[in-house]
Structure formats: structure tokens, C-alpha cells
């Protein structure tokens, strides 16, 4: 079952599909495929979440031992997006993207340029360079960045298909530490904003969607959970719940109490 297809009860509020580079998606949860202990967990997580986009990476084949290929566990109708992980410069990212396309794995690419081994923060400037060149070559480019308004504006200019700001450090499960900066991107950038990295629990995903993010990507949390496919489903539901919350036009928070029940006609005299 695809939970994104659950109809809204109020017919006047109709959700739109997520559209990236002209392609429509009904599910706003994206799944990374790294770190799964076994590949059947990955397959089950794709199925239980109903995700329509997954990320993969390119690596040298280990000549010493035979490994099962991950593609055998990803249904053909799921959009494959190659990340450029391992790239330290724009040139290395460009090479990875070209290899993936030449090899027939499509032209969807998540630009990830990292040159810091402690925090694994993306290099925004190198990411802009790679995005510009690959977009010109016809790739559908989704750059992964530290949330920054000027960088995001530059990415719009050079042809990015979406922007993927990090919620917190990769694999940290810390949630939306960069919330206020992502909020600015949501308000100012006219491209899908997909919150990526650090999303460690369904509540983090719901929080991102409630404030108007277009989609959320998670990987480490799902892959390392005790029951990956259960968490994948929970993420998908949380993304949907957060989306509905956003569409409902959430009321503002207040500093003082405001009674929910009428303040007249009490049964007792005070």
C-alpha cells in the first residue's frame, strides 16, 4: 500500500504530487540504500515505505570477495539516483556522475562533495561547480548542501532540479538542527527542498514536512534500526502526516494558554 495515496478527508485541500524535473512522485519519502545489514531488509524497506526514489553509490569492485549486487533488490519502477559520495572535488563528482550514466544507470544524480572526514559536511562551492557542469550535460542534479540561502540561489541559477539541505550531520540521527536555515530555503527557493542527512526518527521527518519541506530522505536511521522495514514504513507515514499538517495551515504557537472549551455557561459558580 502506498500511504501517499490515502485521500484527504477535506476535498477542498488536495495535495499535489512531488514534481522533480517534470517527473511526478506520489511518495515524498526518499530512501538511501547504504549500511543495510542484509539486502532483504532493503527490499522490504522499499516495499513497506512505498518510496519511489532511492539513492545508490559507485565503488570499485572488491576483487577478493563476491558481493551480491544491490540492483537485484531494487524494483525497476523505483527511480535510481546515484550519489557522488567519495568525491572530494567537483571534478571527482562529475566523473562519478558520468560513469553512472554511461553505464546505463540514468541521469539522476545527487551531488555530494565532501572533503572533511570528521564532520562530513558538504563543500558547497565545489557542489555548485559540479551542479553547473552536470546540469549543462543534461543530468537531473540534486545537490546536497549545508543550508545557505546564497548557495541555494546560485544552485537555482546553474540548473539544479532540487536542493537537498542537511538537517544535521550525516548519520548522526540528531534531527533538524538546521531548522531555521532550512525554513528560509523553503520560503525563498523556488525548487523542491528535500531535507537529507541526520533524520533519525519519524518525528524529525514530520517536523521537516510540517514546515513545508517537499520531501525527506533518510538512510542510516532505517538501515541501522532493529527492524528496518518497520521504521521505513513509519518514516513514510510521518512524512505524510507532516505533509498533511503543512497543508492544513497549522495555527501559530502562542505564549499564553487559550481555553479549548467555552468560557461561559459553567455548571458551577466560582
Amino acid at each position: 500500500m502506498n500511504f501517499s495515496e490515502v485521500p484527504l478527508t477535506n476535498k477542498t485541500v488536495q495535495d499535489q504530487p512531488l514534481i522533480i524535473a517534470g517527473k511526478s512522485f506520489n511518495n515524498r519519502f526518499l530512501l538511501g540504500t547504504g549500511k543495510f545489514k542484509n539486502k532483504t531488509d532493503l527490499r522490504d524497506s522499499i516495499e513497506s515505505s512505498g518510496t519511489e526514489i532511492v539513492t545508490v553509490a559507485l565503488r570499485r569492485i572488491d576483487l577478493e570477495r563476491h558481493e551480491e549486487n544491490i540492483l537485484e533488490y531494487i524494483p525497476a519502477d523505483v527511480t535510481l539516483m546515484t550519489n557522488t559520495s567519495g568525491a572530494r572535488t567537483s571534478q571527482e563528482a562529475i566523473r562519478i556522475a558520468r560513469i553512472a550514466r554511461e553505464a546505463g544507470h540514468g541521469d539522476w544524480v545527487k551531488i555530494e562533495v565532501i572533503n572533511d572526514s570528521k564532520y562530513l559536511l558538504p563543500d558547497n562551492q565545489e557542489t555548485i561547480k559540479a551542479t553547473e557542469i552536470l546540469a549543462k550535460e543534461g543530468f537531473i542534479v540534486l545537490p546536497y548542501i549545508s543550508p545557505d540561502l546564497y548557495v541555494a540561489r546560485e544552485l537555482v541559477k546553474v540548473g539544479a532540479a532540487a536542493v537537498m539541505p542537511l538537517g544535521s550531520l550525516i548519520g548522526s540521527n540528531q534531527g533538524l538542527k538546521t531548522k531555521e536555515l532550512i525554513k528560509i530555503l523553503i520560503e525563498e527557493i523556488d525548487l523542491p527542498i528535500i531535507v537529507d542527512a541526520g533524520i533519525g526518527a519519524p518525528s524529525h521527518a514530520a517536523e521537516a514536512m510540517e514546515m513545508g519541506a517537499d520531501a525527506v530522505l533518510a538512510n542510516t536511521a532505517v538501515a541501522t534500526a532493529g527492524h528496518p522495514s518497520v521504521l521505513a514504513k513509519a518514516f513514510s507515514l510521518a512524512v505524510q502526516a507532516g505533509r498533511l499538517g503543512y497543508l492544513s495551515k497549522l495555527p501559530a504557537t502562542k505564549s499564553l494558554a487559550n481555553a479549548s472549551s467555552p468560557l461561559t455557561g459553567f455548571l458551577y459558580n466560582f
Binding site: G32, T33, G34, T55, A57, R60, T220
Partner: peptide
């Protein structure tokens, strides 16, 4: 020669 493969990745 580089022999490369698709692997799991975020």
C-alpha cells in the same frame, strides 16, 4: 582498468 559497481549508499 577500473571495475566498478553500484553499491548501497545514501
Amino acid at each position: 582498468l577500473e571495475l566498478i559497481s553500484i553499491v548501497g549508499g545514501g
